[in-house]
Computed example of a mutant assay.
Amino acid sequence: MLEPLLPIRKPTGRPPNWSKRQLIDGLRWRVRVGSSWRDVPVQYGPWQMVYGLFRRWQREGTWARVLTALQTRSDATRRG
């Protein structure tokens, strides 16, 4: 559901070591648990990468667009 709403990775440079899914799961874990960034388990990637993704998408407005799109879908299913 989220994938079409997320920015597309540019094919230049090295391939990533961590998938977007792992990093987003790390963000979700941090929000659910309420921990500090440094406590994000390494299975989600280094905490610096999880935080970096969060901040980059925050600055670019990605999270606002995702929220708006999900709210729109939710409203449409309630009406339909």
Rank of each mutant, 00 (worst) to 15 (best):
V66D: 02
S74P: 08
D39C: 13
R55L: 10
T68Y: 14
E60I: 04
P41S: 03
Q48K: 14
G26E: 01
T68H: 08
T12H: 10
P16V: 01
G34T: 01
T72G: 09
L70H: 08
Q22R: 14
R73K: 13
W47S: 12
W57M: 09
W57E: 00
R28S: 13
V66I: 06
G45A: 06
W63C: 08
S19E: 01
R59F: 05
V33I: 03
V42G: 08
P16K: 13
Q58K: 12
R65S: 08
W29Y: 13
D39S: 14
V33M: 11
D75T: 10
N17W: 14
R65M: 11
P16I: 03
L70D: 11
K20G: 05
R79Y: 12
Q22D: 07
P46N: 14
I8Q: 00
A76Y: 07
L70K: 10
V33E: 07
R78S: 08
G34Q: 11
R79D: 04
G80P: 04
W18G: 00
T72S: 11
R30G: 11
L6Q: 04
Q71S: 12
P11S: 10
W57K: 08
V66N: 05
Q71E: 08
D75R: 15
T12E: 06
G52D: 01
G45S: 04
Q48G: 15
V66F: 02
P15G: 12
R78D: 04
T77G: 02
L23M: 10
M49I: 06
T62I: 04
A76N: 10
V31G: 10
K20H: 10
L23T: 00
R38A: 12
V40Q: 02
P46F: 08
W47Y: 14
S36H: 12
P4Y: 10
S36A: 14
V40R: 03
T12Q: 13
S35R: 04
G13M: 08
F54E: 00
S74A: 09
P15E: 07
A64C: 10
K20R: 06
R73G: 11
V40D: 01
G61W: 07
W47H: 05
G13E: 05
D25K: 01
S74Y: 11
E60Q: 12
P16H: 14
R56I: 02
R28V: 12
R28Y: 06
Y51P: 03
W29C: 02
R79C: 04
L27S: 07
Q22E: 04
I24C: 11
G13R: 15
P41C: 07
K20S: 00
M1G: 13
R56F: 13
W29I: 01
R38V: 14
R78Q: 05
R9K: 15
G45P: 00
M1Q: 15
R21G: 00
V31E: 03
R30L: 09
S36E: 15
V31F: 05
F54A: 05
A69K: 00
Y44A: 02
A64L: 09
S19G: 07
L6R: 07
S19M: 05
R55W: 10
L27T: 03
Q22M: 11
F54C: 04
Q58F: 10
